[in-house]
Design a protein around this nucleic acid. Structure first.
Length: 201
DNA sequence: GAGTAGATCCTCT
DNA sequence: GAGGATCTACTCA
């Protein structure tokens, strides 16, 4: 499978990229063990104009420095002292846009993922929610800043295509503190997919 | 089934 | 020193 080229991420419309990431395969290959999952849920964070973003109003710190890099890098950080959140940096250099990957549908290395999470059998909690999927794929803060063109962390396209009516938008999750911006429909997910967070159907 | 509290630690002020 | 791009478990109905 071919990695998605860096140019895919280096475009201005973070919402468009977020939608196009749905259905792609996120792959990690650490210590020669490969695990992967199809992206079924994402959230866009539109940098300086987005209250919910770490880079709101152009904030720039050691932690979010990677958001200012050119598109095609991973931004990983720890939330609530427990959960690792995996983001894809997008747009051009110095424009801190990012896409948070919230949920995956397991594709390969499922037993390895179960082992990492400490579960016995596959269920829809394995890769549902950003904290869980990072754990399942073995992603930690030390992977922040890794290029998605590297061989241990990348995204591929296996030819899977979604119809327009399979993509739904909704307000983002867990960003109530962002006031009005918490209501922006920047979350995209695949209709009816079991691994999308929220209430199971 | 729905709502709420607790866990737990890194980062910025 | 405070708070956060979350998840789980437990309570109550």
């Amino acid at each position: 499978m071919k990695k998605i080229p860096a140019l895919f991420y280096q475009r201005k419309d973070v919402l468009l990229i977020a939608k196009q990431l749905l259905g792609k395969i996120l792959v990690t290959k650490f210590n020669k063990t490969e695990t992967s999952g199809r992206i079924v849920e994402v959230e866009a964070y539109a940098g300086a104009t987005d209250k919910a973003s770490h880079a709101y109003m152009g904030r720039r710190t050691a932690r979010n420095e990677i958001m200012y890099a050119e598109g095609g890098h991973a931004y990983v950080y720890l939330c609530y002292g427990i959960h690792h959140l995996f983001n894809v940096v997008t747009n051009y250099k110095d424009i801190p846009h990012a896409i948070l990957v919230r949920a995956l549908e397991p594709v390969s290395g499922i037993e390895i993922m179960l082992d990492r999470v400490g579960k016995e059998k596959l269920d829809n909690t394995l890769t549902r929610g950003p904290g869980n999927l990072s754990k399942a794929l073995g992603i930690f803060t030390k992977h922040s800043g890794v290029s998605l063109q590297s061989d241990e962390l990348f995204i591929t396209d296996d030819g899977f295509r979604l119809k327009k009516d399979q993509i739904l938008a909704s307000p983002r999750i867990g960003v109530d503190y962002a006031g009005d911006h918490a209501l922006l429909p920047y979350r995209f997910y695949i209709k009816g997919n079991l691994f999308v967070s929220g209430k199971p159907k």
